[in-house]
């Protein structure tokens, strides 16, 4: 099966790059899975778990705020925050939770509230 060139970048550094069999992206309008030769697509991200599947292995990362850009050259995920799932505990988790709660209480447009609610929901599972 053809491999999907893929990269995950945050403002501070290039988080991961390489090839994958498929990547499951938490889009604003729902989860979608990207494989090689996907049609060009641009979607905003919703806070959630990004799953990178490659040769039977799985990497799970919490991502928040950004975009997924699928073009003929591959998939690029631009996320403001990216944290591997197994590091999502203790202090790091607490800070993320706090930030999401705070943003939720501040309110905003219905879309913003929905996004923050999702972040709170996802994080509550850890």
């Amino acid at each position: 099966m053809a491999k999907l060139p893929f990269s995950l970048v945050t403002p501070e550094r290039e988080y991961a790059s390489g090839e994958a069999d498929s990547v499951l992206v938490p889009g604003t309008e729902g989860l979608f899975e990207v494989q090689a030769n996907h049609a060009p697509l641009m979607s905003t991200l919703s806070p959630g778990i990004l799953v990178i599947r490659n040769a039977g292995t799985e990497r799970r990362l919490f991502v928040r705020g950004g975009f997924a850009d699928v073009n003929p050259e591959g998939l690029t995920v631009l996320a403001e925050v990216a944290i591997p799932e197994d590091e999502l505990k203790g202090d790091v988790l607490g800070r993320q939770k706090q930030a999401a709660q705070k943003a939720l209480s501040e309110g905003g447009t219905p879309e913003q509230v929905l996004e923050q609610q999702r972040a709170v929901d996802v994080l509550a599972g850890y």
């Binding site: 604003t28 309008e29 060009p40 697509l41 641009m42 979607s43 905003t44 975009f67």
Partner: peptide
């Protein structure tokens, strides 16, 4: 530019992208 499909739509993407 390859004809992109936009989710939710171009305008919404632009409004989240510009502040970033």
């Amino acid at each position: 530019v390859a004809p992109y499909e936009y989710e939710p739509d171009e305008e919404a993407i632009l409004t989240t992208l510009l502040p970033r």
